[in-house]
Simulated scan of single mutants.
Amino acid sequence: MKRVISLSLGSSKRDKTVTAEFFGETFEISRQGVDGDEKKFVERLAELDGTVDAIGYGGMDRYLWSEGKRYEFAVSRKLLAGAKKTPVLDGSGLKNTLERAAVEWLQANNVVDFKNKKTLIVSAVDRFGMSEALIACGGQICFGDLMFGLDLPVGITNPKVFKVVARTLLPIVVQMPLSMLYPTGDKQNHIVPKWGKWYAWADVIAGDFLYIRRHMPDDLKGKTILTNTTTEENQKELKERGVKQLITTTPIFDGRSFGTNVMEAMLVAINGGKEMQSEEYLAMLQKLDWKPNVITL
């Protein structure tokens, strides 16, 4: 049995362990949160290094991308320095393929007509494949990076302007401390409604679920949510708010969709611990006959 652990800076309340089979291999897949405790994260990573087939890095990105250029978070580089034997994957390699393919599949199969929808993508630099695919569809888009990432009341609706802003700010953003960038630990369990104008404007709300959830309003009637890493409790929350459709880009195991970091770690484990290029990830996904999960709430 292959073992894949997603070690997350997030809340331990979202922990889950399941078994699944891919390409004839049985996997034990486990998500373990450290409640925002960076010291505990480093200690647990050292314990896991060399004892499992692959490790997913959850609760934060290691890399952000813009126009083909990769930026590494300083805090992530420091946190992951202790992993010497086991590959650690943050999901960014898979986001460029899986989530891009998800948007293309949904459009081509008339599940979601992005061309004629208004889409709020809460953090496009975190979902570069998804954001590029949405732009290609031609619909209206609001890039929420300044709002959801930096708490600045600015929604960007012009893709060209967004690219300029991303190019300017990313070198600065990746040097910021973890506390300023992403909800970790107990903060992941609280909802503080904000940016209601843009939630109301959008037909589709896309991107990282914890960003979506962190500021979502009580009323999301008729909305489509395009995301991953949702639990059964999250589905209940969305249904209570009137969400029409939940689409997850990663497979559901025992009522739970894990993050791209888990899927990327699984594929790397199958590949003997060797990281892959975008076309190699896509080829493996095609062999799995992967498709997005569409759930009517």
Rank of each mutant, 00 (worst) to 15 (best):
H215A: 13
N271A: 02
N110I: 02
E237F: 09
G155N: 08
T296N: 15
E275N: 14
P87C: 08
M147P: 00
I205E: 03
A102P: 03
M180S: 12
E21K: 10
G222E: 09
S278H: 13
T26P: 12
D15I: 01
M284S: 05
R70H: 07
E47D: 13
I55F: 06
L170H: 11
P292D: 01
L282V: 03
E99A: 02
Y281P: 09
A46G: 01
P217S: 05
S8F: 07
E275C: 13
M60Y: 03
A166Y: 06
D113M: 08
I247F: 05
N261C: 07
D113W: 08
N116I: 01
Q140I: 00
E67A: 09
W198M: 05
I141S: 02
F41S: 04
E38S: 05
V125K: 12
N271P: 00
K223M: 00
K2C: 00
E233H: 12
G24P: 01
M1D: 13
G24A: 02
N261P: 01
V165W: 11
Q245E: 11
Q140V: 00
D203T: 04
D218N: 11
K117N: 08
T168P: 04
P171Y: 08
K197W: 01
Y281R: 10
P87A: 08
S123N: 12
V52R: 12
A283D: 14
G196I: 03
T19C: 10
G91H: 05
F209T: 02
F73R: 09
A124S: 15
T229D: 15
G24W: 00
T227V: 01
P183L: 04
H190N: 11
F148M: 07
S30P: 03
K221S: 15
I141M: 14
I270M: 14
L181E: 10
V161E: 12
